[in-house]
Each structure stands twice: as C-alpha cells, then as structure tokens.
Design a protein around this nucleic acid. Structure first.
Length: 267
DNA sequence: GATCTATGTAGAT
DNA sequence: TCTACCTAGATCG
C-alpha cells in the first residue's frame, strides 16, 4: 500500500508517539537485530520518498522500506503477545507498533544513510526538495515520463497510483519521452504532486478526483481498493473515464501496470 | 478455504 | 527482463 504519503504519515505518527522517549524494541520473528536500539532514546522519525528512518543517535538509524507488502499496525497499551511474523516491535510510553513483511528493516550508520539518500531524487513531500533537480534528469532522458516518474533516483515517493493520476490530471500521455517535457509542464506536474501527496498524508488515502468530476457515490458500495480514495484511472480498466466516458486503457510497462484515458491523454 | 493480485525494489540473468 | 521477497484483502467456488 505504500507510496510516499504513507511513509510521511508514519513518520509523523512515530514522531508523535515515540520521539524523546526511551523505547523497547524487539524482533519476535528474529530477523532484525533489535538489541542495537532496544532501551535507547528514540530521537526522531523522518521519511524520504518511500523510506522511513528512526533516528536513535549518531550512527544508529533504523531504516525501514515497506516494499509491496510491509505494514505497520499500532495499538495502545497493554502490549499483547505477538501473532504471526513480526519483524520489529516498538513499544513507547503509551503505544506499541508491529512491523510486518518489510523489504528492509536494518540499522544503518550515518554514512550508510547518507549513501542511501544520495541515491534518491527530490521528494515532493519534503521542504528541501528542488524540483529543478528532477527536471534536469527528466529533460535529458529519452525514457517515457511514465517510467521516469517511478524512478526513485529521479524523484522520490511517487508510486503507481500517483503516477497514473497526475498524468491524467494534466492530459499527458504516459509514453511522452522525458526530453519533450519542458520546465513549465514539469513544474505543473510537480506542484500537483505536492498538493495530492500532502492530501494523502493528511487522510491516509489517495484522492485525486476534482469535485466537478466526482461520481455519484450514493447507493454505491465504498471503493474496495486499498488506496481507499476516488481516482480517475488507476485500476479502472475498461470503466468509463470520469471526464469523457472513454473506457480506461491499461498496459504493462517495465513490469508495472499503467492506466490512462486514450481521449483525455492523447499520444 | 483456495486463489489471485498488488500502491516496490534488489539482484540475478 | 525475470524472479524472489512472503502480507493481506478481494474474489472465487
């Protein structure tokens, strides 16, 4: 479920729950070296793209990447017996949280954290992000914009849902080559991503449909997709476009599903 | 209950 | 380009 907004939302939550407190950290499953941080003071939590960092002190940062499956679940005290495979359990003064199924959960030194972050492009959800850095990469690439938007070294945090939706909202065909994307279009896409993703951090869902295009949801079951919100094209293959009625198209590109409206996003 | 699918990435080929 | 990772909700029967 995680695109960048999920990780920023988790970082805010963990900051509120655990920052400044001494925490108990364990790995009921045994696959994480929890003893490096157990009993230490949780200094702060932050996110960059889809990466989450729990900072405990110099050269002691827990790096988490959820991958496709990873999830955090949080509960108020009392702490219960672990059920199933729990990679990391973190318990603070009022709440505890279990991490399951992440791609990464590891303790890194400051040099390792810096190296990891050096591989990431600017993140629309971070104040320090410079969109022109991402545009410089895009503008000199012949790869499609669809591929570039998912490349975390170009920009960090966009996933398959935001990719499909931001291209739709700007009427851009997914296969436009990067070197045909001028600065004005890039800035429009970037600004829209900051708005959409900040909304995602607030609500925990991905909502991209403008009010005037919102379908009549009365009498209809709530969306079952895990992103939870209303979207224009993501996973709406064959359903009518909310703007023009054309069936939404889908194709596989570089191993990921791509969705677009052939009419609203002409080649 | 079994099967399918996925908002992701690294590493092998 | 392919596969492994290995969770959980939706869908099928």
């Amino acid at each position: 479920m995680p695109e960048g907004h999920t990780l920023h939302r988790l970082a805010k939550l963990h900051q509120r729950r655990y920052a400044g407190s001494t925490v108990r950290v364990s790995s009921p499953q045994g696959k994480f070296a929890a003893s490096f941080v157990d009993g230490r003071r949780f200094v702060r939590a932050e996110a960059h793209g889809k990466h989450l960092f729990h900072v405990y002190g110099p050269d002691t940062t827990v790096h988490v990447h959820l991958g496709l499956y990873g999830t955090f679940a949080e509960f108020p005290h009392p702490v219960l017996e672990p059920v199933g495979q729990v990679r990391m359990r973190l318990a603070g003064p009022t709440h505890w949280t279990d991490l399951r199924g992440p791609t990464r959960c590891e303790v890194l030194t400051d040099v390792e954290v810096a190296a990891l972050r050096a591989r990431l492009g600017p993140d629309p959800l971070r104040r320090d992000a410079k969109p022109e850095v991402a545009h410089a990469r895009v503008a000199r690439s012949r790869q499609s914009l669809a591929v570039l938007l998912l490349d975390q070294s170009v920009l960090a945090g966009v996933g398959n849902v935001y990719r499909a939706e931001v291209l739709f909202r700007h009427g851009v065909h997914p296969l436009v080559p990067g070197n045909e994307v001028d600065r004005a279009l890039w800035d429009d896409l970037w600004l829209d991503l900051t708005v959409l993703m900040r909304g995602g951090v607030k609500t925990g869902r991905i909502d991209t449909v403008r009010p005037e295009h919102m379908p009549d949801v009365t009498g209809r079951a709530p969306r079952k997709d895990r992103h939870g919100g209303e979207v224009y094209v993501y996973r709406r293959t064959g359903q009518p476009c909310l703007v023009c009625g054309t069936p939404v198209a889908a194709a596989e590109l570089a191993g990921r599903n791509l969705y677009w409206c052939p009419t609203c996003q002409p080649a």
